[in-house]
Design a protein around this nucleic acid. Structure first.
Lengths: 181, 181
DNA sequence: GTCTATAAACGGATAGAC
DNA sequence: GTCTATCCGTTTATAGAC
């Protein structure tokens, strides 16, 4: 394996390991030592790839942001608010269910709320999503609905007994009901 | 002021200070030093009242649990599922809005998820609430609805421009719509 | 690219004086 | 009831060898 390939491999491993641990124990309760131990490398090696702990978090959230930007671009091509809601919810729920074991790490984790840049990005995406669903001037009820539906992740903690398919259907119905008002 | 009164005063101050800081920065990112500094006392003095940091968190959550137990007892006296939902939502939303500046510290904070005892209590209350709203054997859709509605706290972050009264009405409508399915 | 070693600060928690 | 002083483990982060 080339050195560049090894680098990419390690970098990716750090992200997936951190993602799981952040989701399980929370960002603040996860140390770089724990991440390194889990991967069987040293802490110093982790620092070779990320200058700070928060840089790891930002890299993870950037991935999320890129995903949502793509989803919103797709959604914008669809005509009709109802069809748009269905497409958006489907994409969103698929993502949540695909990561169901490690779902959280949403806007609710304190670490995310602390990060100004990420918050600004998320606010931008929220505004764009609401524009697609509700037009240029959403009511407060519509805005509230969007905030609630877009934070559906934690709900899965109470539905562990469902298969992926069952969970997906339950969450889609729920989100659509909330968004449609 | 008597010594006992002073003790009660300080103890209460620790709880309110910790509550605000936990809600703002998260439990793990709040140190006892920060709590003590904010109150203008020493860390050692905080330890005089609470043996550990997590004891502070537990005291806070115990208050929440007591509140919900009372709300559920009241709700149980009401006949008719629709009226029950309205009463439960009203009590719940009032509580959320009354603490709107420091809303979170719900089941979403990692510190809460880590605490076995608190989790067991919250699960018990959740089961009882669902029984009151949906009968002895709620469907998965109903369960999902309850989990979503009971975590409405974070929604207020996006609705800062509303007055308390406006916010209360928006949240009540939203929760009822979710719960009624 | 990965390691060992270590710095420097901070965390939770305790002992003992007043 | 509150304080000063301190212990000790852990944390983020860096320096430098291989």
């Amino acid at each position: 394996m080339t050195r560049a390939a090894q680098a990419e491999r390690t970098r990716a491993a750090i992200l997936t390991t951190a993602r799981t641990l952040f989701a399980t124990h929370g960002y603040d309760a996860t140390s770089l030592q724990t991440i390194a131990d889990e991967m069987d490398v040293t802490k110093a090696n982790v620092y070779y790839y990320f200058r700070t702990k928060s840089a790891i978090l930002e890299a993870l959230l950037d991935n999320t942001i890129v995903f949502f930007e793509a989803l919103l671009r797709e959604t914008a091509k669809i005509r009709g608010k109802r069809a748009r809601a269905e497409h958006m919810v489907a994409g969103f729920v698929d993502q949540v269910v695909a990561n169901r074991a490690l779902s959280p790490l949403g806007r609710t984790d304190p670490s995310v709320r602390r990060n100004e840049r990420i918050n600004a990005e998320l606010a931008r995406l929220a505004a764009e999503a609401m524009r697609l669903l509700y037009g240029d001037d959403p009511t407060d009820d519509q805005r509230a609905a969007w905030y609630l539906a877009s934070d559906v992740g934690p709900v899965i903690a109470g539905l562990r007994h469902l298969t992926d398919d069952e969970l997906r259907e339950v969450l889609k119905r729920l989100c659509l009901r909330v968004l449609r008002g």
